[in-house]
Amino acid sequence: MTTTPLLQIENLQVEFATRGGAVHAVDGVNLTIEPGQTLGLVGESGSGKSVTARAIMRLVPTPPGRYAGGRILFEGKDLLGLSDGEMQSLRGGQISMVFQDPMTFLNPVFTAGEQVAEAIRAHQGASKGEARAKTIELFRTVGIPNAEERFSAYPHELSGGLRQRVMISMALSSRPKLLIADEPTTALDVTIQAQILDLLRHLQDEFGMSILLITHDLGVVAEMCDKVAVMYAGQIVEEASIEPIFDAPAHPYTSGLLEAIPSTSNDGAQFRPIPGAPPDLARLPQGCRFAPRCRYRQAICQTTPPPRVAVSPAHSARCHFAGDFKKNEPEPAIAGRTS
């Protein structure tokens, strides 16, 4: 493949100044998204997924945040080097974002239609009437029934599923090349979740955009994504296409996440959450960040940070024993001690 990737994040560092010292929320993240591709970003709460997403939009609040290093190349241009004005026209134009909770992320005092039309006017210089017509058309595209009436509905008058459809129509209004969806279904009912994911997939086919899909749910990843990156304590610990990661996870953390899925097929008997909690991002362990919770850890894990190891051309993991950690004797005591 010789095409330039749509988005290429290189060694991104984002810190937050806190009373307890600098929190390295994103610490050396590398990610690549090709045009039309869907990349899943998974990891426990607090691992830095949302901060990574906000960094791409350059919406990390600074201060207390700081882009401490690295590059975010969008079609080859470094977003961190753009002027505020250039960045503003990319936001909602070529890169847009759908957030977790469509209730709190929509402004309660404006109608759903106004909020979408506003985005259209900002980017396409459309008149009020044109923006309205386009909004209603978008509402139809994202499957909002009675689109015309819904234009003047306020967020509190819509159901959760409809609100998320409004958010999606807003994000798609200027046909972005990259859509960032930060846990777009977490706040919704299970049946609605499936509908929204279906819609995203369908819209991706229609609009041909790339998607960065942030989620806790590996099931969603399996269904939606071409590639997946697993994040832990501010770093990408494993990155691969879907099959290899589900069939043969190269990092113990990914393996742990997979075991933690309460699945009906394996009887629930194997369901085993990862014991312990992620490290404090202001006081990181000296060696591997996952070592304190790792059942397969060895002496080296506690002293030396692991490099990124390629287990195959498109599959890498940050582990001293990437790919064959299972050969190490598991330590059953860890679960009892740390949890």
Binding site: G92, S96, T104, N107, P108, F110, Q115, A122
Partner: peptide
């Protein structure tokens, strides 16, 4: 500090519109 402000920014609105329209109205 509300979430909808982030949405307004992510739409590509100017800082002025975000503050004077989305925040001030609330």
């Amino acid at each position: 500090s509300q979430d909808y402000i982030e949405t307004a920014r992510s739409k590509g609105l100017s800082a002025r519109t975000v503050v004077m329209k989305h925040a001030f109205r609330n």
